[in-house]
Design a protein around this nucleic acid. Structure first.
Lengths: 229, 229
DNA sequence: ACCTGAACACCGTTCAAGT
DNA sequence: ACCTGAACACCGTTCAAGT
């Protein structure tokens, strides 16, 4: 198999990151390798070190890209819970494009400019809604983590395998669950399909975000009830 | 540096998994290597292949251990939301012991016996509480993911670095946030400490689980209101 | 049944050297 | 300024061979 070198593509920092993300999408984050990237550009592995300080720095840059791709359309006039929902959904949309890169998100939220801006927005939102400093920090953290979790929990998000392989191992999982003894595992057998598959992804995400936002709302209400008592 | 071989320890499957978990705790999951484990046992790397089929199978076994260590004390007489809370907290306690192994959890929930048993319990709980099949599956999934997320969001959980290094890079993060322009990032600066540090871990976890359980409760109530309207 | 030696195809990274 | 060659210290894994 010849290296799929793209002659027209010049080697520079942005091109390297682009390629790395594309490679992660196609074959998983493990496939992103200095040597493999060199191959893709038709160049020696060491050539990459001119454009990128180390592999770790490359991974950081990929994480920054995720935050840079978050498209926020938060209307500041709306109620705080609506705005919070918009933020989480914006995260979800961005992360969904590169599901195998999810693990890069957490360590760049405070380091990337976009991550900082969104954090600032979320913190202000919650603080003004009446949360304590502690609660504000926790809810903001959970907002990000909820997005990560929803994308990560999407069936078959973890590996960077092909579509056939994916449906294959999904079928294996299903068979494994349905093979369980009926007396001992009635509910798993009843809901095996729901656990492994979902044909309404917008609904799935809406539900997940709803649970989170409802939880935040309930927390605020309980706090108010406590402090007025 | 001599390999810290433990002469008394015999080489067998359980010992390998024990060692792998201890190694992950001490130096991170990346440090868990067939070759390194061989070194620790004072044995050739290839010797391990007699006790473990591949590195992937070893990782699976480590994941299974996490589920096996979940100590469930769910009282079946209690209301469903209390039981749900107990399950999530039991997950949290188990995962906290090996925070660097978090990524192993997701792929073993349906494969390990203990994972299956807890799943069955959770599904039955929610189904009988009145959730639809779809909702039951989603909430159960989120229960696991919430535990993963809470442990993962705990400051400094990701790397398997020493305590000094950890507080060092925490200080660096803090400095980075406080160095941001005050006019543009007032809230980040106000809540930097809360975002990076927490001295009440039980409170942190209680709050996180509360948000989740409250969200589940709100979902159920809304559904009932909808269907009775 | 359990372990070793040698080998293969991979990694990230450094450093001197080329143009 | 940008890339290469050679080298180093690592990976997981196979397979024939030892005891």
């Amino acid at each position: 198999v010849a290296a799929r070198r793209v002659l027209s593509e010049t080697l520079n920092r942005d091109a390297v990151i682009d390629r790395a993300l594309a490679l992660a999408d196609a074959e998983g984050l493990d496939a992103v390798t200095i040597r493999r990237l060199g191959q893709e550009f038709g160049v020696t592995p060491m050539a990459l070190y001119w454009h990128v300080k180390s592999k770790d720095e490359l991974l950081d840059a990929m994480g920054d890209r995720l935050f840079a791709s978050v498209q926020l359309d938060v209307v500041s006039g709306q109620p705080w819970d609506e705005q919070l929902r918009s933020i989480v959904l914006a995260f979800v949309e961005a992360f969904r494009r590169h599901p195998t890169c999810l693990e890069l998100v957490y360590r760049r939220i405070f380091a990337s400019v976009e991550g900082q801006q969104i954090t600032e927005l979320a913190l202000g939102l919650l603080r003004n809604a009446g949360f304590t400093r502690r609660e504000t920090a926790d809810v903001a953290t959970h907002a990000l983590q909820t997005a990560i979790m929803l994308v990560g929990a999407e069936p078959g998000a973890e590996p960077g395998v092909s579509a056939e392989e994916q449906s294959e191992q999904l079928a294996a999982k299903r068979a494994g669950l349905l093979a369980l003894p009926a007396e001992q595992f009635p509910y798993i057998r009843e809901m095996a399909d729901e656990m492994l598959h979902c044909d309404d992804m917008p609904g799935y995400y809406a539900f997940g975000v709803d649970v989170f936002v409802a939880g935040a709302r309930a927390t605020l209400n309980r706090q108010r009830a406590d402090s007025s008592a």
